[in-house]
């Protein structure tokens, strides 16, 4: 598989108040692959994800140094630059959190929410996009009868797929996943994993996970971070091939 570099970080450091959380991280993330980031909890994995969509700017007392370049719309751009608006960036870099976080509104509104934020209001277009996104995460058949129910009434696995659909509706180029299955039961996890594999053609996935077997199953590449430092990279993961063969 020919893969170009989608994201490149150089000497990336991150500080929370005066404490340094990440130390000189320089990594390349290949496009259209699933890259797993692993490491003990509290080692800065989630922080690293938040740098890639600049979500850290919403938290008080954070600062950053170093370079993060990302290929967006076919061009390599410095995403830490003020010239690039965080809102534009976050529409191209979707994120799914550890806990499913449906907003307190209906299923339909939850998924259409990013469209509303981007001022896309054409009703047919919105309905179409919502249906597509729900089909993509294989939730359509389960919820098409009750699109007006509160999103928080779904089961945990359904909620997480809802959040995935919500992140996908703006057709992001990069998808960040912060331990997306750790709050789910094995069956729901398997469904999510299957989905992630199917998304590789569409976007570049970066996933924080501490399940060795999960990384083995679906990741193409694995980076390990310990105490805010990059430790090792391994490319002997299967990227989903093993399962398909058995």
């Amino acid at each position: 598989m020919v893969s170009s570099t989608k994201i490149r970080t150089q000497d990336l450091c991150f500080y929370y108040h005066r404490q340094q959380v990440l130390h000189d991280i320089s990594l390349d993330f290949p496009a259209h692959q699933i890259t797993a980031i692993s490491g003990p909890s509290g080692s800065g994995k989630s922080t690293f994800l938040m740098i890639l969509n600049r979500l850290w700017e919403e938290i008080e007392g954070c600062s950053i140094s170093g370079n993060v370049a990302m290929e967006l719309d076919g061009e390599l751009q410095d995403i830490t630059s003020r010239a690039l608006s965080a809102r534009i960036l976050r529409r191209k870099v979707g994120m799914v959190f550890q806990q499913p976080n449906p907003l307190p509104m209906s299923i339909f509104k939850n998924i259409a929410f990013p469209l509303r934020l981007a001022s896309i209001t054409d009703k047919n277009q919105v309905r179409h996009a919502v249906e597509n996104a729900l089909r993509q995460v294989q939730l359509w058949d389960e919820v098409k009868e009750r699109l007006n129910d509160d999103g928080r009434l779904l089961s945990g696995g359904q909620q997480q797929r809802l959040c995935l659909a919500r992140a996908l509706i703006l057709r992001p180029e990069v998808l960040l996943l912060d331990e997306p299955t750790s709050s789910l039961d094995p069956e729901a996890s398997a469904a999510i994993e299957e989905l992630l594999l199917s998304l590789k053609s569409q976007c570049t996935l970066i996933m924080v996970s501490h399940y060795q077997d999960q990384i083995q199953r679906i990741a193409d590449l694995r980076f390990e971070i310990r105490e805010g430092r990059f430790i090792s990279s391994r490319s002997d993961c299967d990227g989903g091939n093993a399962r398909r063969q058995t």
């Binding site: 969509n53 979500l55 919403e58 965080a86 809102r87 534009i88 976050r90 529409r91 979707g94 994120m95 959190f97 976080n101 907003l103 307190p104 929410f113 990013p114 934020l117 981007a118 919500r166 992140a167 703006l170």
Partner: peptide, 9 residues
């Protein structure tokens, strides 16, 4: 919840 909307742009 506070982070949800910013993460979606």
């Amino acid at each position: 919840i506070r982070m949800t909307a910013p993460a979606l742009g």
